[in-house]
Simulated scan of single mutants.
Amino acid sequence: MKKRLMLMIIAVLLLSANPFNATEANAATPNEITTYANKFKGTPYKFGGTTPSGFDCSGYLRYVFNNFGISIPRTAAEQYKIGTGVSKSNLKEGDMVFFSGTYKAGISHAGIYVGNGNFISATSSGVTVANLNTNSYWAPKYTGARRLSEVKNVATPVSKPVAKPVAKKALPVGQYYDVATGHWAVKEIKSLSTQSIITGYDVSLFKPNNDVSRAEAATIIARALKLKPVKSSAFKDVPSSHWAAGNINAVMKAGIVQGRSPGHYAPNAKITRAEISKILTNAFALKASNSSTSFKDVKGHWAEGSINSVTASNLATGYKDGTFKPNANATRAEYATFVHRAINK
């Protein structure tokens, strides 16, 4: 009996010591990281915040990775020192991405790459997703990326080499590869471009279907009205180092725009059609329209008066279903058209 008991104990010890039976600790797949990170979309920003009641950028990353038993430093600058450097062209889901010069010099913002050029991070507008390559605020501030060894790398299928595209040449001012001659807004886009009121992207791209940020909207209005940039900082989330600070402060001083909340402008947030109506009404001193709106989704809306004014002035129109969609975002082509009509009304 004793001998049999000893044999059973030895067998248990051998099994528990077998590395093939061990569970790998602190391991997560890139998809698990990004899936968990996306759960916090919309969480409000809080300076020094480290919990779902409010995050700052580095606190958000720390919270996400800690869920998988991965401990990282507290600040974005310190987080940039860990892991292995990754080139922008080799980014994978779960990589940490970093930015410089957002509110101070050096590494000052961090996020998590979620694929297709997008990253998620805690910004002044809350936890949101933005594009590394096309976002006018984040793209020029991108600094680098780091990959943590604790995150399992899923093998990437080997694909056939893709032929390198032929580099395009810059077109004359006002012409864009993605705004064809027959585009419905080609005249307005060309006109504003030649007046330096609106600009495109590298290699003569306009990206007419991209949404317009509140920072871009203010900048375009400031240029259209030839307002002189104002250096003073009017909003807590628009530091003097922000690329659009001077124009945002100028249109605010002129009484054209307001913040989305006390002391906050939300420069990276997408502007809505209602907000555009209010901006155009203030910027171009449109006459108030007392007639009741014909749009079924505008009655009682906070911007009803402004929407009535821009539609009565033929600056904007509604949709075939009888709606104006005041809370929908406007594209770059639409905004260019609205501003062009206002200038030439």
Rank of each mutant, 00 (worst) to 15 (best):
R4V: 15
L5K: 12
M6L: 14
M8T: 13
I10Q: 06
L14E: 05
S16F: 15
N21K: 00
A22W: 13
T23K: 12
T29E: 11
P30G: 02
E32C: 08
I33A: 05
I33K: 04
T35Q: 12
T35L: 08
N38G: 15
K39V: 11
F40P: 12
F40N: 03
T43W: 08
T43D: 12
P44K: 03
F47V: 15
F47N: 08
S53Y: 13
D56K: 03
G59H: 10
Y60K: 04
L61K: 00
R62W: 08
V64E: 07
F65G: 02
N66P: 01
I72W: 09
Q79N: 05
K81N: 09
V86Y: 00
V86Q: 04
G94V: 03
F98M: 01
S100T: 14
I107P: 09
A110L: 01
I120T: 04
A122N: 12
A122C: 08
S124P: 01
T128G: 14
T134W: 11
T134M: 07
N135K: 09
Y137W: 11
Y137C: 09
Y137A: 04
A139N: 06
A139R: 10
P140H: 07
P140N: 10
A145K: 08
S149E: 12
V151Q: 11
N153Q: 12
N153M: 07
V158Y: 08
S159R: 11
V162Y: 10
V166H: 12
K168M: 07
K169T: 11
K169D: 13
Y177P: 11
D178C: 04
A180T: 15
G182Y: 12
V186N: 08
K187L: 03
K187W: 04
E188Q: 13
I189H: 00
I189R: 01
T194H: 00
T194R: 06
G200L: 11
V203Q: 15
L205H: 09
F206W: 07
N209W: 08
N210L: 15
N210V: 06
S213V: 06
R214H: 03
I220V: 12
K231E: 10
S232W: 01
F235G: 01
F235P: 08
F235V: 02
V238N: 06
W243Q: 06
W243N: 03
G246I: 02
I248D: 10
V251I: 08
K253S: 05
A254P: 03
G259H: 02
G259N: 05
S261I: 06
P262K: 11
H264R: 07
H264S: 13
Y265S: 02
A266T: 00
A269D: 06
A269G: 05
A274N: 08
A274G: 08
I276Q: 01
I279H: 05
I279Q: 04
L280A: 05
L280H: 04
N282R: 13
A283V: 11
A285D: 14
A288C: 05
N290W: 01
S291K: 13
S291I: 05
S292M: 03
S294D: 10
S294L: 00
F295I: 09
S309M: 09
V310W: 15
V310H: 10
T311R: 13
T311Y: 06
A312F: 08
S313C: 07
N314P: 03
L315R: 04
L315C: 12
L315I: 15
G318R: 13
Y319F: 15
T323E: 10
N327H: 01
T331L: 02
A333R: 07
Y335N: 01
A336L: 02
A336Y: 07
T337S: 05
H340W: 10
R341E: 09
A342V: 06
N344L: 06
